[in-house]
C-alpha cells in the first residue's frame, strides 16, 4: 500500500522554530504501521521541519513549489498516480491552523475521510479498517473505502525520532504550475494574548451536605444514593462485572 503524509510548514508553539507538529508525527506513525512505501508531501519551500519529519521514518519528502491554492496543487499532484492512503495531522501548526485542508482535499478529490484515527488495521476487498479515538478513552471501529484520507488523533502512538534518518532523508523540490490564488483572509492579526476561560460554570460546589459521625451502614447508604443521583453508577454496572 502506498501512503502519503501531508506535512505542514509547522513551527514550535513556544520557540517559533520549525518543528513537526504532534499530529503529523502521529500520522507518520500510522502510515508506517499500514506498511508499504511512505512519502511526505509539502506545499511550499522545504524547511528544517520536513527534514525532521524524515527522522520519524519518511524515506522521501516532496516539496511542491508553486504559487496559489495549496488544495488545488495537492489535488493535481495526488490525482496523477493516486496513492492508496493520504494521512494528515489533526491541524497544521503555524499557518491558519483551521484543520480544513484534509476536508477540502477530500471534497476536491471525492475521497472519503475519517478524523481522529488511532490505529490502522487490515485491508479487505478495498476496505480499510481503522480505530477511532473518542473522549474518555472510548474507541470506535470503522471501515473506509480506499483510496481515502485519514486525520490522525493527536494521541496516536508516535514513532521514535532517529537523527540518522533525518540526515539521510531525500528532500526533493518539485516545480508545479501555479494554482488560482486563495482569497485574502480579512481581519486584524496581532500577537496572541491568553484570555481567561469562563469561571464558575464548573466551579467548586462548596458548602455541601456534611454528615457527622454516622453509622457506617448509614454512611454507605447516603454515599451510594448521592452517587446514583449524580448518575455515576448507571453505565458502570456492566464494567464492574467483567472487571
Amino acid at each position: 500500500m502506498r501512503g502519503v503524509v501531508l506535512l505542514s510548514g509547522g513551527i514550535d508553539p513556544v520557540s517559533g522554530r520549525p518543528a513537526v507538529p504532534r499530529g503529523e508525527v502521529a500520522a507518520i506513525g500510522l502510515a508506517l504501521s499500514a506498511g508499504g512505501a511512505v512519502g511526505g508531501l509539502h506545499v511550499g519551500e522545504g524547511s528544517v521541519a520536513q527534514r525532521q519529519a524524515g527522522g520519524y521514518g519518511l524515506e522521501r519528502v516532496d516539496c511542491l513549489r508553486g504559487g496559489g491554492d495549496a488544495v488545488a496543487i495537492l489535488a493535481a499532484h495526488l490525482s496523477a498516480p493516486p496513492p492508496d492512503l493520504v494521512l494528515a495531522g489533526s491541524r497544521a501548526c503555524g499557518g491558519e491552523d483551521s484543520g480544513m485542508l484534509p476536508y477540502l482535499l477530500a471534497e476536491r478529490l471525492g475521497w472519503p475521510l475519517l478524523a481522529g484515527v488511532m490505529a490502522i488495521g487490515a485491508v479487505a476487498d478495498g476496505w480499510l479498517s481503522v480505530t477511532i479515538g473518542l473522549p474518555l478513552g472510548a474507541r470506535q471501529e470503522a471501515r473506509i473505502r480506499l483510496p481515502c484520507i485519514l486525520c490522525a488523533h493527536d494521541a496516536a502512538p508516535a514513532p521514535p525520532f532517529v537523527f540518522d534518518r533525518a540526515r539521510r532523508v531525500v528532500v526533493r523540490t518539485v516545480d508545479v504550475s501555479d494554482a488560482p490564488p486563495v482569497p485574502v483572509v480579512e481581519g486584524v492579526e496581532r500577537p496572541y494574548r491568553a484570555r481567561p476561560r469562563l469561571i464558575g460554570s464548573a466551579g467548586p460546589g462548596g458548602g455541601g451536605t456534611v454528615l457527622e459521625n454516622p453509622e457506617p451502614a448509614e454512611a454507605a447508604r447516603v454515599l451510594l444514593a448521592h452517587l446514583r443521583a449524580l448518575g455515576m453508577l448507571g453505565s458502570s454496572e456492566g464494567a464492574s462485572i467483567d472487571a
Binding site: 473518542l134 474518555l136 474507541r139 470503522a142
Partner: peptide
C-alpha cells in the same frame, strides 16, 4: 464509503 461501528467504552481501570 464509511461504515462506523458501535462505540466501545473504556475500562475504568485502564483509563
Amino acid at each position: 464509503r464509511v461504515q462506523v461501528g458501535p462505540v466501545v467504552l473504556a475500562q475504568a481501570a485502564e483509563m
